[in-house]
């Protein structure tokens, strides 16, 4: 187990260095001059030259990359060109809002997805199954910005039960979390439906039925234990994705998270902030992969980490 973790740790480090290299290269390939970003459209060439010198942009690219990597390894992701603030501090400031939204959305999507999947599998072939199939496909297909805006108009403007955007207490969490969760819930329910349908035809399920276990007991204690496993992988990676920022949902709901920070960084061509948010996302994905693998083994001892070599 320890050897496996060490190996994955090294792989993770390679992925992160690769990501930083690609992001740094892309930042240089984009024909945007950081000095223009800093000085604004009206700056004269003398001011631009002074800024380039001050930022070290006149040094060779490999030296600039080396300096960046060295600082990043010490937790310093540089200073934002536009905000003139420490990128690490900006990410730290936005992380709690994104974390609250992402974790709530994942919990909600798992609850809804599992409920829909179980009910659909239990009523296989019946009208309810078809209705849930239609519902889950509709949820997966709905664009997030449209669904978010509709929920905002309905729940915030007309019913006035929820705040019109912003992060201001538990009620403000409902609409954005629902917007994020509904799509994932639709997807989870389809996966679970397929897995449960397969599991219900397995020998061990038949044996359980033969032993007189009730229908719900078979579903929840025997079939579910195996059918749920793939959802762990999906939800783990979804959570990592959401933690690295959900741009559209955060934008629609004025949610002060990392997604909007990244969006604003791209919009302003704020290279240090773009690199910081990308590296942070990559780190989350690497860590999430590792955690999911470990949870998988814990949930199903038949799987050995050694085999995944």
């Amino acid at each position: 187990m320890l050897a496996y973790l060490a190996r994955r740790f090294v792989f993770g480090a390679v992925v992160l260095i690769g990501t930083s290299l690609i992001t740094f290269a892309v930042a240089f390939l984009v024909p945007a001059d950081p000095a223009v970003t800093l000085a604004g459209a009206k700056a004269d060439p003398r001011t631009l030259a002074t800024i380039r010198r001050e930022l070290g942009l006149d040094k060779p690219i490999y030296i600039q990359y080396g300096l960046y990597l060295d600082r990043a390894l010490h937790g310093d992701l540089g200073r934002s060109y536009i905000r003139r603030e420490n990128v690490t501090a900006l990410i730290e400031e936005r992380l709690p809002a994104t974390a609250v939204l992402a974790i709530t959305a994942i919990i909600l999507s798992l609850i809804l997805g599992i409920a829909m999947g179980v009910i659909a599998a239990a009523s296989r072939g019946r009208a309810l199954d078809h209705a849930l199939l239609f519902t889950s496909l509709a949820l997966v297909s709905m664009p997030v910005f449209w669904l978010g805006t509709m929920l905002l108009i309905a729940g915030g403007l007309y019913v006035r039960s929820f705040p019109l955007g912003g992060f201001s207490g538990p009620r403000s969490l409902v609409l954005p979390a629902l917007t994020l969760a509904l799509g994932s819930a639709g997807y989870y329910s389809r996966i679970l439906h397929t897995n449960l349908t397969e599991a219900l035809e397995q020998d061990y399920v038949r044996t359980a039925r033969g032993k007189g276990v009730s229908r719900s007991g078979v579903m929840l204690h025997h079939a579910m234990a195996n059918a749920l496993l793939p959802l762990v992988t999906l939800a783990g990676l979804d959570l990592a994705g959401m933690l690295s920022g959900v741009v559209l949902t955060e934008t629609v709901f004025n949610w002060p998270g990392i997604g909007r920070l990244a969006y604003e960084a791209v919009f302003n061509l704020d290279v240090p902030l773009i690199m910081g948010t990308v590296l942070f996302s990559a780190l989350l994905i690497v860590v999430a992969n590792l955690v999911v693998d470990v949870i998988y083994v814990w949930l199903d001892p038949r799987i050995s980490l050694a085999e995944t070599r």
Binding site: L152, I153, G165, F253, N254, P256, R260
Partner: peptide, 18 residues
């Protein structure tokens, strides 16, 4: 000042009197 509210969201809040 509420930061990061899109023009549409600002309009909704204006209509709501916020």
């Amino acid at each position: 000042d509420s930061l990061g509210a899109s023009a549409e969201l600002q309009w909704f809040r204006y209509e709501a009197g916020d």
